[in-house]
Structures are given as C-alpha cells and as structure tokens.
Amino acid sequence: MDINPILLLAALMVASTPILLAAIGELVVERAGVLNLGVEGMMIVGAVCGYIAGHSSGDPYLGFLGAVFAGAAVSLVFAVLTQFLMTNQVATGLGLTLFGLGLSALIGMRAEGTPDLTVAKLALPILSDIPVLGAILFRHDLVVYLSILLVAGVWAFLTYTRAGLILRAVGENHEAAHALGYNVRLVRVLAILFGGGCAGLAGAYISLVRVPQWIDGITAGAGWIALAIVVFASWKPWRLIAGAYLFGGVTVLQLNLQAEGLKIPVEYLSMAPYLATIIVLVMIRAGRAPASLGKPFHPSS
C-alpha cells in the first residue's frame, strides 16, 4: 500500500477548495431565494482575470482580488437581468455560463504567465507543529484557510446576525419580507454579488494555485459540481465542507486507487457523488430548500 492517508487528506483539501469557495457563494445566493446556474461562467471569468491580474502585477493576492471583482462584475449582469428586468433565473443563469465561457476565452487569448509566480504556503503557528497531522493539515496556502473561514463566517452571519435573518426571510418568503418593509431586491443583488465574488475567487484558485496556468475551459465543470454540493449540504454551511471534501475526495481517491493498481470501475465511479446528492435530497425531503428559490419577485405584485 503506497497511499498515505495524511497526504491524501492534504491533497483532498487543495482539490476541494475551489468547489467549496464557489459553493459557499452559491449557498448564500440560494438562501436569498435566487438560483444562479451561472457559477461555471463566473468561475472561469474569475480564473482568467485572476491569472492576468496576478501575473501582470506579480502578486498572487492581487490576482485573487482581481478575480473577486471580475466574478462579481459578471454576476452583476445576472443581478440586473433577474432582479430588475425580471428575466427567468434558470435561463439567465445558463446564458451566463455560455457568456462566461466565451468571454474568458476572449480575454485569455493573449494571457501570458510568468513561471515564478507562486502562492506561499502558510504554516499556522502551534497547530503546524502537531506531529504528523500538523505538517500536512496546517501548512496550506492562505486561500484554503480562507475557504473554511468563509464557511464559518457565512454560518455565523446566517445564524446570529439580523442581516442574516433578513436574508433568510427573503429567501423563504419574499412577499412577507417585502410586506415587512425589507428591500428584497437589494438583499438579493448583494447576495448575488457575494456569490459572484466567491465564484471568481474559486476560479482564480484553480488558475493560480491548483493547476496553475490558464487554459481555455480550465474550470472543467467545477462550477456545476459546486451547485450540486449546495444541494448535498441541504443549504447548511457546515455540511458544505463535508460535501466539497466528499466530491473532491472521490476524485483524489480514485486517482490514488488507480495508481495503486486496484481494479476499480473508474468510468462509473465518478457518478457516485451525484447519486449521493440525490439520495441526500430524498432524505432531507423538500421543505428545507428555501421556499422562494428560483421564483421571480416584483415589488408591486
């Protein structure tokens, strides 16, 4: 047996970070009652913009920042269309994916990289000194920790803050929230922008850390997986980590098992996370999904 479970866990954390980041953004969007299927499009625009910003400035963190803005900017298109021009969310989200794939390829046509841009690993004090575990689990780059902090932050925001309460109210019953005097559209636009920013950051993590390079279509469906994880987590922030690590874990694990020479039906194994998601959906029943998810809202109606 050549598989080192600790290394596996560490690899899994890196592989799962982009989907976790995109998913935590989408979770907030969906909790506000909006279904944005354009995650893949926002992610890939973030990937190319982050790559360009990072490599032209020589600072990967500026790259990440650029990606956040790029993702949010693209999501603004979705926000304006769905919230103010009352377009259908499903169709607009799909359109956003097409648009993002095209736009990113256009932007990236002349993107050039410098080979030496690296994102430093950050060893957490004390924790990283724990024998075995510490060396692996607590010596990642900043974004890995950030993704987990974001999950914690979103959880705290939704659970303990008034703004979080309002956001949930908007997602559960926008008519009632509106009647109570909350600005449904403003809340949703902000949620969408947050989702876009997270997706952008997720994309940049792929193009700046995980691969790292820019190539057309580099996100390769990660945005769609993020959508699946939100459902898998039944819209609960902490469960996202489990979901993301499960999805990322299946990928990393199957690669490791193959290298080990085990006969596994790899072609079929990649269905497993999606089937698991459906099973989770059945077990949690509906009810838990934000009640206004995907429904259009207009203040006068």
Partner: peptide
C-alpha cells in the same frame, strides 16, 4: 484537463 492532470501527478508523486 489541467486540474485533473495536476491531481493525478500529485497522487503519483505522493505514492
């Protein structure tokens, strides 16, 4: 598929 290739390479190296 750069992301998958990267993961595969890492898995091989770790083994």
């Amino acid at each position: 598929n750069p992301a998958k290739e990267a993961d595969a390479a890492k898995a091989l190296i770790e083994q």
